[in-house]
């Protein structure tokens, strides 16, 4: 519940700031503004002062203490740094609506059509002898174990 409270505060504060300062979420996420925001919201963030035992064989189940110097890195329900700014379909870039328009403003193609086209093996689809479909599920397992982000 403390993490949910932090998330609510962050989301609502972001909304208030962008409206009051007439800036976009992209502006707020930019350098400078993001540091001001982080400083202002710091005291309302959950999970502070994590203590790790260096003698523990494993990290915590939620990923905490995987990195002893930065105990929260890679843990569940924490923000993940991005290489590029987000571009979701909702105006606030929260991600509740997937992106549906291209940079030209035209609707993006149906992902199912792309998937079917890319993976269409024709009448004689290639068969690998090195991996089975288990590789896919193992990759998904690792992915979700690392992310665990709602």
């Amino acid at each position: 519940s403390s993490m949910a409270r932090s998330a609510d505060i962050s989301e609502i504060a972001s909304d208030i700031i962008t409206r009051r300062m007439s800036i976009t979420m992209g502006d707020l996420q930019g350098l400078g503004m993001s540091q001001r925001f982080a400083t202002a919201i710091d005291s309302n963030c959950a999970l502070k002062n994590i203590m790790c035992n260096p003698a523990d064989i494993y990290r915590k189940p939620n990923g905490v203490c995987n990195n002893l110097k930065n105990p929260m890195w890679g843990s569940s329900i924490t923000a993940q740094p991005r290489f590029i700014p987000p571009h979701y379909g909702d105006g606030k870039n929260i991600g509740i609506i997937p992106r549906y328009l291209s940079v030209s403003g035209e609707p993006l193609p149906n992902p199912r059509h792309i998937s079917n086209s890319v993976h269409n093996g024709g009448i004689s689809p290639p068969r690998g002898c090195q991996f089975t479909v288990l590789l896919t599920f193992f990759g998904q397992f690792v992915d979700h174990d690392v992310i665990s982000t709602p």
Binding site: R5, I9, I17, R20, M33, R36, A40
Partner: peptide, 16 residues
């Protein structure tokens, strides 16, 4: 600072 004010307002709304 306007950012701090907005965060404080959000805290008030969430904790209300």
């Amino acid at each position: 600072d306007i950012v701090s004010e907005c965060v404080a307002e959000a805290v008030g709304l969430v904790d209300r």
